[in-house]
Design a protein around this nucleic acid. Sequence first.
DNA 1: ATATCGATTATCT
DNA 2: GATAATCGATATG
Length: 211
Amino acid sequence: MLASCKPLPRAFFNRDPRKVARALLGKLVVRKTWRGVLAGRIVETEAYLGVNDAAAHSAAGKTARNFVLFGPPGIAYVYFIYGNHYCLNVSCLPDGTAGGVLFRALEPVEGIKQMAAARGIDPATDADLANPSFLKKLTSGPGRLAEALGVTRERDNEKRFFSPRSDLQIVDDGYSVRRIAVTPRIGIVKSADEPLRYFITGNAFVSGPKV
DNA sequence: ATATCGATTATCT
DNA sequence: GATAATCGATATG
């Protein structure tokens, strides 16, 4: 059923990152592998604006690393950080205008066993696969969700989220979000007081402060 | 529950 | 040569 969901159209991403970050909550990130489908519901995002946002990678202009942010909307921007982790973003706004949204946390929906294996944390028993504290370690945090989905810069940077043939998609399964909270972004020093972090109120898989 | 710290490397100054 | 949109382990209240 997930496999039959159509990805969100490119136009969905062709607007202000704040709008996209908010609208993405409740949607699914879908990864198709030769073993099966991995999917997680987006429960936490952060908006990164263009050249006017000191915390954004695009702040100092286009480089070999961040060029995707300056390109057309709906494209995966993956970067490597702290020598250890990948982080997954989607580009926003039309070609020539920088902007993006960072995926900060997902709620595991499908392919949980495979995601646990990718994270290197094997369940002790099958009961663990439904245990909230076990599930939270899978995709609660930007580095974690990238690892769970097997996302790397080498494989996934520049991938088209909106293409029906892409193995990395964002789809709408009709889930409706009740309430959204907005707070400052996490893990940055510049522009650290701008309220650009969005999450689903009360969701257990949100990373960081839940107020 | 909150705080601090080390890991480890692509990228930019 | 310094930095970084993080994580996991360890220490302390």
